[in-house]
Amino acid sequence: MTTTQLEGLIGMLFVLGILVLLVLPAVFGIVRDRRVDRQLREAEQGPAKERGPAEGQGPVRDQKSSSRSTVPSTATWYAEGRRSKKLVSS
């Protein structure tokens, strides 16, 4: 292998490496989107198909809510105040 061929091979491998680095995040994004789509489809079908009384695993329980009361954040309070001011000034 001559020096010119070796330089060509190194250049080609360098370009392919850069191409892989540029394409890799897009591939990860596609894989993530497909996983999310699959999870959404499974959620739309409902939990009764996955685990329910028909399969002998017992009744499906509702999700329990937290016993703590929810308090609006400062951002919500600020937005509500500005919204009411706009309504009054109109």
Score class of each variant (00 low, 15 high):
58 G>Q: 04
44 E>P: 00
60 V>I: 12
30 I>T: 06
53 P>G: 05
50 E>D: 05
50 E>A: 11
43 A>L: 11
82 R>I: 11
59 P>K: 10
57 Q>R: 14
60 V>L: 15
59 P>S: 11
76 T>L: 07
42 E>V: 00
10 I>W: 02
90 S>N: 11
76 T>R: 10
72 P>I: 00
11 G>K: 06
69 S>L: 07
68 R>Q: 12
66 S>G: 03
69 S>R: 12
6 L>N: 03
66 S>Y: 01
85 K>E: 14
31 V>M: 09
36 V>T: 11
62 D>Q: 13
84 S>Y: 13
47 P>M: 06
3 T>S: 07
55 E>D: 15
56 G>H: 07
77 W>T: 05
86 K>S: 12
3 T>K: 08
69 S>E: 10
82 R>S: 13
78 Y>K: 11
50 E>Y: 10
1 M>R: 13
12 M>H: 14
29 G>Q: 04
53 P>S: 14
61 R>A: 12
7 E>Y: 07
26 A>R: 11
60 V>P: 01
7 E>L: 12
3 T>A: 10
12 M>N: 13
45 Q>L: 08
42 E>Y: 01
18 I>Y: 06
2 T>M: 06
23 V>I: 14
30 I>N: 03
85 K>M: 13
23 V>K: 06
68 R>Y: 03
37 D>K: 13
72 P>T: 01
7 E>K: 13
39 Q>A: 11
76 T>S: 08
85 K>P: 00
62 D>T: 10
